[in-house]
Design a protein around this nucleic acid. Structure first.
Lengths: 243, 243
DNA sequence: CAATTTTCATATGTCTTACATTTAATGTTT
DNA sequence: AAACATTAAATGTAAGACATATGAAAATTG
């Protein structure tokens, strides 16, 4: 673990990079304690604030955690799926909003990914997942629900569907795609009629999973995708004609 | 943007969180300059090193970039897909290695996601994507190729397939899943016979995309998945019986 | 006057030192 | 032996200084 003081990059970035590589390469293993800040500053021949900046960079990526006190220090963190979710969601959300990704593109990606989960979810979903989906459907049918709440419930419904596949890797990857869609969806006004149609398709989807019917689930998702896409298109058109 | 000095969390974490929220909520827009470190330390009533630690946290997530000099400072960064890839790949890789995700689970996720891209890729792939895939197939058939290089080429092949869907959101999400598989795949020894079979299926896949044949592509991927999974199982069995 | 060079102000990058706070281990007293 | 006090080690925070990069304004020059 050495750094080049003549490099263009910041020292703290170089140090963070060196430690990150050590973690990825397995030279530092989970729960292993890193040298203290004072020791690291000696090893890298930099000051303690510089070392601290490097450690904060790693902490921001959940690669390490720090503990104060006598036996404290920086420890290689066991990155859990639960910890990684929010990061993934924040990044995905910003990617969509900052890169002017069209609703169509985001929607296409989301449903493509979801449809890849559907067969697995039809096979493995637990009663719990089904119950969550039914509960969200029920919430969606409540009158007086704001559009934001309707969309949030939609997200929860679809996450239950994805989680039903019982594959943490899929759930992690999908979390970003599904959650990041919400800000885009929030821009849509759902009429009572739209909601009824969506709820109908959600019910169809839940029924299919209930019956372990992969084909039925896929069909419902396909219809949901085209309905959502068309809805977005017509909403955008109305809005632009008014403006 | 205020912080609670009595909170359990570090001040730098709180400050980073406050600024991050401002960015996500759109209160700070792309390329907007943040106040200088000195100004931020006044606003938040903390010292400059603390502010710097907060900014480094944000920089580690590519949410800001900093520039030295007279007109320098910290700017809200336009998060690009290109920038987000490595993060996503690092995180995915660590998630797999630190959570003892089985080869089966990772493989299932990867192929499920890839199969969701296949129909889109069959429709939209460019000549460039096809060329990349053919080139990788050619590389894979070279004798004397190490297992690591074979796996790396496999990853490149599959990324070209995914990119063929021409959906940046899909490419981003899949990058993690596909690349993170490589360390797991590197643990497998591929016999000449295995390689021949895989190359045959890759060719079949490329041919299907060439012919815009979504069904053929899906079939090839399905076969590839089951072949890969069985291969891994038998390799693991051999290894455990030897040990 | 235009082009070039110099100066200068500003901001981040880094170092040094100091003190505060947390925490577990150690020692002391009852 | 148990409760309490002490201590040492580590991170968290602060303050001030200097180094360095950089754009803009000022001075100089052809």
């Amino acid at each position: 673990m050495k750094i080049d003081p003549n490099s263009a990059a910041d020292l703290s970035a170089q140090i963070a990079s060196a430690i990150r590589d050590a973690i990825v390469d397995g030279d530092l293993i989970v729960n292993q304690r890193l040298p203290s800040e004072a020791e690291l500053s000696e090893q890298f021949e930099v000051s303690r604030p510089t070392v601290r900046e490097a450690l904060k960079r790693l902490a921001a990526q959940s690669l390490i955690r720090t503990q104060r006190g006598a036996t404290g220090g920086a420890f290689v963190n066991k990155l859990s799926f639960e910890e990684a979710y929010p990061q993934q969601i924040t990044t995905s959300t910003l990617l969509l909003s900052m890169n002017a990704v069209s609703f169509e593109t985001a929607c296409e990606a989301r449903y493509a990914l979801e449809r890849s989960c559907a067969p697995l979810s039809a096979k493995r979903r637990s009663a719990d997942h089904l119950a969550t989906m039914r509960a969200e459907i029920h919430r969606q049918s409540q009158p007086g629900l704001t559009d934001e709440a309707f969309c949030a419930s939609d997200v929860a419904f679809h996450r239950a569907l994805v989680d039903g596949a019982q594959n943490p890797v899929l759930s992690y990857q999908l979390a970003g795609a599904v959650e990041a869609m919400q800000p885009l969806m929030n821009m849509i006004t759902f009429s009572a009629r739209d909601r009824a149609k969506i709820i109908e398709l959600h019910t169809q989807l839940a029924d299919a999973l209930d019956a372990h019917d992969a084909g039925g689930a896929d069909a419902a998702l396909a219809e949901l995708e085209s309905y959502t896409t068309n809805l977005a298109v017509s909403v955008m058109e109305k809005r632009s004609s008014k403006a």
